[in-house]
Amino acid sequence: MLLKALLLFLHEQFGECGRPKVGWQIDPFGHSREQASLFAQMGFDGLFFGRADYEDIQARNRTKTKEMVWKGSEQSWLFTGILPNRYSAPNSFCFDFSCGDQPIMDDNRLYDQNVQERVQAFLQAARDEAAGYATNHIIMTFGDDFNFENADEYFKNLDKLIKYVNAQQANGSNVNVFYSTPSCYLYALNKADRSWKSKTDDFFPYAHHPHGFWTGYFSSRAAFKRYERHANNILQVTRHLNAFANTNARNTLFPLSEAMGVAQHHDAVSGTEKQEVAFDYAQRLSEGIQAAEGIINQAYAKLLPKDSQSPPIQFQYLCQLSNISQCLGIEGQERVRKLLSFCN
């Protein structure tokens, strides 16, 4: 749902040229081969992700196989790469104000001018990273959670870093640094014209150390997982009714579509969020379902009457508190005609 909502937004804002061709999954806790299959069938050219099992990464570093052809089902193959540092900057090169790393100080009047030290540290970081990859192209991420809150400071330091690192080419350095995108990086790898190792199974389960397996989230927050599934049922039924009845209520349905997209974030339905955030997700789903209720009744009013003599259609309520035997929509009414509606 999240991907669908985002793709729809990009298409509406930018047209066909805004359609992404590269998957970028930097934080989900493991990856299914079916994801590779789906991306390939959607016309994606590649996928890059940040998290893989620590032992898998160690083995791939030794064999330079962190980039591969992932063979999904339905003969759907997708070029896939594991990012070198999840989605964080190399060690000691975080330039946000929340970081404790030194900025690039290039004023020669400063006693703690550090250009040479920072350049050499970066060159070493680049060499260390390149050791795990098969070509002379590497991708280096900068940023992290809550980074770029001071984007001006961050980019000023990146500009300096690029300038001084590239200046070392005059001294024999073979490192060339520039701003780029996943698509451009993938294009460069394609132009390398080499064969790649393949993979046919999942990147599950995920562990980041011997006692840190990320598997509890498959069953944590069971109530929210069920509620997210229930909300999706309501969303799909309402979409069909909206189409069949031609009620043109897509904008009214947007809150539920948006809430469903957010609820499928890797830190939402997984249950890895804080409790206050889980409450917010549930509230947004609840408000979205309430908005969908109106569309359902509009559609029923159009679809159910058979002729002008048909009795008025009773308002349909989605009783969201039925688990505690409460239905706010019908409370206080003297006469209630009960109608159970099932939709498959």
Results as ranks from 00 to 15, higher is better:
Asp152Asn: 00
Val277Thr: 11
Gly23Cys: 08
Val336Tyr: 02
Ser198Ile: 11
Gly72Lys: 03
Gly132Gln: 04
Gln314Asp: 08
Met260Pro: 09
Glu34Gly: 01
Gly46Phe: 10
Gln13Glu: 15
Ser180Met: 00
Leu8Pro: 00
Pro255Tyr: 12
Ala268Gln: 01
Gln316Tyr: 14
Leu303Pro: 02
Gln309His: 10
Lys197Arg: 12
Gln75Ala: 06
Pro103Tyr: 06
Phe224Ser: 02
Gln58Ala: 09
Gly172Trp: 02
His11Glu: 14
Ser73Arg: 15
Leu38Phe: 05
Thr80Cys: 12
Met140Phe: 02
Phe178Arg: 07
Asn166Arg: 05
Lys306Leu: 15
Pro182Cys: 08
Phe44Gly: 00
Gln124Asn: 11
Cys327Asn: 03
Ile57Asp: 02
His230Pro: 04
Val175Trp: 05
Gly132Trp: 06
Phe79Val: 03
Leu318Tyr: 07
Ile162Ala: 07
Met42Phe: 09
Gln169Asp: 06
Tyr281Asn: 12
Ser183Asn: 08
Gly23Val: 03
Gly329Pro: 04
Tyr317Lys: 05
Asp128Cys: 15
Ile82Ser: 00
Val237Trp: 05
Cys17Glu: 11
His11Tyr: 13
Asn190Ser: 14
Phe155Asn: 01
Ala222Ile: 09
Lys66Asp: 03
Leu304Tyr: 03
Arg60Ile: 01
Ala282Asp: 06
Arg284Tyr: 08
Asn242Gln: 14
Tyr54Met: 09
Gln333Cys: 00
Arg221Gly: 00
Val336Ala: 03
Phe39Val: 07
Gln326Lys: 07
Arg335Glu: 06
His208Pro: 00
Glu276Leu: 06
His11Trp: 06
Ser322Ala: 12
Leu83Ala: 11
Cys343Leu: 10
Phe44Glu: 01
Ala188Tyr: 14
Arg51Ile: 12
Tyr187Ala: 12
Ala89Val: 05
Tyr217Asn: 06
Thr135Phe: 15
Ala243Pro: 01
Ala292Trp: 00
Leu7Lys: 09
Ala263Asp: 09
Cys94Asn: 14
His209Gly: 10
Gly212Cys: 05
Ser98Cys: 12
Tyr187Gln: 13
Lys71Tyr: 06
Phe48His: 10
Lys191Ala: 11
Thr252Val: 15
Ala131Cys: 07
Gly329Thr: 03
Gln113Lys: 14
Arg194Leu: 13
Asp152Leu: 00
Gly216Glu: 12
Leu189Thr: 01
Pro84Gln: 01
His265Val: 11
Lys163Trp: 03
Ser219Asp: 05
Tyr164Gly: 02
Tyr317Cys: 05
Ala299Cys: 09
